[in-house]
Nucleic acid binder design. Sequence first.
DNA 1: ATTAATGCGGTAAAATATTACCGCAATTTT
DNA 2: AAAATTGCGGTAATATTTTACCGCATTAAT
Lengths: 84, 84
Amino acid sequence: MKNKYKEEVLVLFGKKVKELRLKKKLSLRALEKECDIDNSYISKIEHGKANIGFHTIVELAGAFKVHPKELFNFEHEWKDEAFM
Amino acid sequence: MKNKYKEEVLVLFGKKVKELRLKKKLSLRALEKECDIDNSYISKIEHGKANIGFHTIVELAGAFKVHPKELFNFEHEWKDEAFM
DNA sequence: ATTAATGCGGTAAAATATTACCGCAATTTT
DNA sequence: AAAATTGCGGTAATATTTTACCGCATTAAT
């Protein structure tokens, strides 16, 4: 699959993280304390600029106390061109 | 959060991957061709032995043509002790 | 009985994520 | 107005994932 599409999903994921963070009224530095992830790294995640690992995903979900799948709760469909 | 709990989620994720692979009646080597991930690495993923990156998650979802959140479609709740 | 396919463990090298910082411009609080 | 907070870009060092293999014991197919 083209990298372009993975990065699109990464951006959607990042927006979800930001959405959850703002819903909890946390600053980047406040969230950093909840999940032990550097605030500048969280910023990169929210902008889809970091291809984060599974542990990091779970750590974020834990900070929000939500099921990890909640972070993937956005609209997305596979288009044929993603695989060409 | 304790690593133990991240690894538990990783195991659940791996089981989901295996479930989807078998549903599609694919061998590890057949799936390897669909997503360009080495069969022995997929085996490790299915057993929760690899802390995989976001790109890999999306690549797997793409091979199954499902929304990435489908791979997180398993029961899971946060317990207090996970954070102590 | 042979042959082919399968799951899976191991590994060295390469690629990449993650950490732990600094600093700054802009906004918010006091 | 001064002080504090915020989002975010950059970075060097470290840790980790990922790749691309090999081999082997077990199972399935011919």
